[in-house]
Design a protein around this nucleic acid. Structure first.
Lengths: 186, 186
DNA sequence: TAGAAAACGGAAGTGCTACTACCGTTTCGC
DNA sequence: GCGAAACGGTAGTAGCACTTCCGTTTTCTA
């Protein structure tokens, strides 16, 4: 069977423009904004938008992917240098502490329907999994806590109203999740 | 000026029917359900629904009020009998641990727009405030935590996916929020 | 219990939005 | 340069929030 042809440049360019426009539009107006407005901002026709993202939820998921990309890269970099506890703290904190606009956008999108919710959960789980497992291997993770749980906690903190409340929640959760160092094993 | 006439019986009855129907409908289908369907379930005409709740958000807020009523009564009863720490634990836990259906409904509604979000926050703050202040007065509340913060935490836990993850979050948060008893004061 | 006041039901209509279908035109890859 | 693929625009469908109008029924009250 023949190799499928590589995607055209204008296709990639338009997809990118749509993602950027959607991200901005969602940040300003939330997911209620009309898709035609997103298309107009991106400088493409409505049909092009629907060609790339057949349903609104597809666009929302793609924007969520976009938002998480930077966070994930950061998490991987941190894990290479920090010890398990500090690495976990950093990943957990900065997964919760994206820029204020990003947090607002993410929270609004993650609450925009079951499908977006689940997608956000999957994305965050992938981000926090390595740091969580490393913490567990070091014997410093509270018992019975899974990476899924951690992702849920992160997602929860994103729904906090103020940065202040979010910071407090992060603090309390971290305190409870990281167990104290035990005496050196035999 | 003359006393305004008392509300008619059919008005009150229809309002109640609408609230019950809306609660069920929201629980089953989330807030996306069409209002005409809610009216049909309640056995009233669409115009009657709009007379009682001019905007969909008004209906959502009213249902939230309804859902919180039982929880609040429970909280007040608990506070009269339990000591500050146990009272706080009970209020916090059962504010998070409504019946599974109630939690699902509440979470879906509380995420249904900014206005619903803020309303939910206000309601929960009112419920947890007394228990929080009593815990603070007993010197057992973590520093810098306000009743608003507690309400935020409770609301956060409602967005957890599974009952299991919610239970874990409650556990971790309670551990972090209640400070250990200090030596007897001078 | 009569009569006014108020709530009701139904139908029709507005405006917005997600999404589809069609089709001539432009842009790209080979 | 040629064919395939993506594009843009227009028109249309369907669903939903919300409004208006109006004749009918229910309820309160004197």
């Amino acid at each position: 069977m023949p190799e499928p042809r590589a995607p055209r440049r204008d296709q990639l360019r338009n997809r990118q423009r749509l993602l950027v426009a959607a991200r901005e539009a969602f940040a300003e107006h939330g997911p209620e904004i009309a898709l035609e407005e997103v298309a107009r901002r991106a400088g493409v026709g409505p049909t092009t938008l629907y060609r790339h993202f057949p349903a609104k939820e597809d666009l929302v998921e793609a924007v969520l992917d976009d938002l998480v990309t930077a966070v994930r890269a950061n998490a991987e970099r941190v894990l290479e240098t920090a010890d398990p506890v500090q690495g976990f703290r950093a990943v957990f904190t900065q997964s919760c502490d994206m820029s204020e606009q990003e947090v607002a956008t993410f929270a609004r999108l993650a609450g925009a329907g079951d499908r977006a919710d689940e997608h956000a959960q999957r994305l965050i789980t992938a981000v926090v999994s390595p740091a969580t497992e490393r913490l567990r291997a070091a014997g410093r993770l509270r018992a019975d806590i899974t990476a899924e749980d951690i992702a849920t906690f992160v997602r929860m903190t994103l729904t906090a109203y103020s940065d202040e409340a979010r910071a407090k929640a992060i603090d309390v959760l971290l305190d409870g999740l990281i167990t104290p160092e035990r005496a050196a094993p035999a």
